[in-house]
Design a binder for these strands. Structure first.
Lengths: 212, 212, 212, 212
DNA sequence: CATGAATGAGGTTTCATTCAT
DNA sequence: TATGAATGAAACCTCATTCAT
């Protein structure tokens, strides 16, 4: 269906790869839509396929089973967030620590907000996906990026405290989750963002002082 | 609304007789066991009944449907945590703010740890239970208790910042969730506890200063 | 359904065991009916259940999957044939060898004929059931029985030739299979029976002579 | 009827070009490989095509449906066996009866052994292919060849017994099937071959004597 | 009250077959 | 002619829930 449209208005001969890409994209997007509109336990492969405008069979050509479909969507989201944070880390090197923290926190919050719908949708299925495991892997990845960044902080005497970084990450996640699940307004989100910066800055400072 | 929910999903009959009480207890415990050993999507009413040593029919005499069973277990857990925190709040009145915060945080962490297995089990089903709604209700309840406590703090000039309390609660929840889902060791939990105290104290101080 | 009938016309209170037994019997019989009327590849669990007058769910309470259902029917049939042959072996001890062979062959043929429909039906599914394995096991069981019987033959000097027994069994099976699959008439079957006796007797005699 | 069947299930086009011949051969061979490695119920047209190194579409240009593909492979095998036996019959004319029988039996056994893998593979699908019908047709063809041969036997007074020939054929088939499905060793097969000769010779002699 | 056999809607997944490229 | 993505009917199996005993 989507392919027809593309064919009709695009170049005559669309490469197979592209057609497949379009289909896969439609399926992923449909997964999120269904998750949001019907909830996790009423997400069926048939429904997802219908929403994507393809048949079930097509869905199963790209994903061997329901689980792999959900996992792919989940992983993709985590990757995007990770990349955003890593980019922020790279950008913030050699700046004062409080600036570093502000940038990282804001990058994280903004990345989540970018696709707030996906975030909310995924909270519903994460438990069935070995979510915790992927969350943990992502956490480690982010911690490393933050650690490397902090090593370049001019105003940080000691080597950064890994445990403190983990605390910060899980605290941010928790706060974002609350706000997202509550369906907070943009205004509230701006406030959450500002307060999270404050929370992380004050805690990191305190943790560093205590470590000394 | 909340009342309707309670009516619809609450336990079907009040266990007055001892035998009934025992049965209900066994069913709830079995629910948690099955959740932990089989996972959320393989939790069946038949399996729960078998684990509890009763027949499915009996289970359905106490809970009108599967949802109400899970909801009851969930609600019970939230109540216990709430009560623990409220008790800590009552105890900590008129003490210095940092002491207040320490006590509340420790009460929360300890209550969660008390039945770490239940906490972990419930993370798996919360999304299917209108979890966020109950979490929000519990959050409001806790915030009120904390607010009242803070009003008695001798070293707090301004009225306490509601938003900051919410931030603290969600940050604590997030950190605990990470640790619980990661299956952290007791040693790690002690460290998490200490750091959460530090985090909340430093943030509340900073938030208060900023508010002034 | 079947239970209702039994209840209506039978004793008031039918023991649970019996009800289950009736159901299981109906399911097995339905399996054979469907196999005969629709063929092996159009045998579906739903169809079997419908034919048995129960729901699919009921079928799955007694057999964990389609395979186990077919296997149970298969095994039951093989058991009945085996028992018939073993009984004949026990009966024929101490008689002349040709008499022994006649009795065994006739027992085998008669047992197969008894439920010719089942035999034909099972030929269709045996390959999907690890049929050969069960056939082999049954073959060994029969061979042992025949061997023991032959040891008591007054006119057999040497110990019986195991290999020859296997040959006889597989030859009988093959001949019966041909006749059954061809839908032979009773008259033809009588002739097949007589000729199989002749075939086995002459071969066993020849094999014994050669062995000497 | 038989003609209709042949029209409906026969190969769709005659391979005149070499490439086509090669392709058809590859597909047939692949069918057998898949049958052996995956079993009858996991034989899919896609898998066969992949194994043959072509696309599904190509497969469907040579065979209108899955059934016709299997039937073609089956028929081809039966033809080869028939031809081998017929050749043996032609060769053995005017020789003594026991010699005739020896040659025919050995020809049959050797033809089956030649492609033991195919034989085993086909046992798995024969029931779904109207196997018995084709087997019966082949049986009649073989019986005729054997009958004609026996008419030239110098030591056979009466006209040959058709029924006895059928018995012999089905007994041989049964014995070979047992051995093949059991995966017998070459040594065992040599023994089976020798014993089958003995079995057929002694039975035919006995049948002739009785007929007289 | 307790039991557990029975129900059947509905979910996941497969695969023969077609057809646009 | 070859390809392989797409189709969708249909199979297997689960499990929340009921109700006769």
């Amino acid at each position: 269906m989507a392919a027809d449209v593309a064919t009709a208005f695009g170049p005559r001969k669309m490469p197979i790869q592209t057609r497949a890409t379009v289909t896969v994209g439609a399926i992923c997007e449909a997964t999120i839509q269904v998750l949001l509109s019907h909830g996790a336990d009423r997400l069926t492969t048939t429904r997802v396929a219908a929403r994507a405008g393809v048949s079930v069979g097509t869905l199963y050509q790209y994903y061997p089973n329901k689980h792999s479909l959900l996992f792919a969507v989940f992983e993709d989201h985590m990757n995007k967030v990770s990349q955003a944070v890593e980019a922020a880390c790279a950008d913030a090197c050699y700046r004062p620590m409080s600036e570093m923290i502000r940038r990282v926190v804001e990058a994280f919050v903004d990345a989540k907000m970018q696709r707030a719908d996906i975030s909310v949708a995924l909270y519903k299925v994460a438990p069935d996906l070995g979510g915790p495991a992927l969350v943990r892997r992502t956490g480690q990845r982010l911690r490393k990026a933050i650690e490397l960044m902090l090593l370049t902080a001019p105003d940080l005497k000691l080597s950064p405290d890994r445990f403190a970084i983990d605390m910060v990450l899980s605290a941010i996640s928790g706060a974002m989750r609350s706000a997202l699940e509550a369906g907070a307004s943009p205004a509230v989100f701006r406030k959450v963002r500002a307060h999270l910066v404050l929370l992380c800055q004050s805690y990191m400072a305190a943790a560093a002082a205590k470590g000394a």
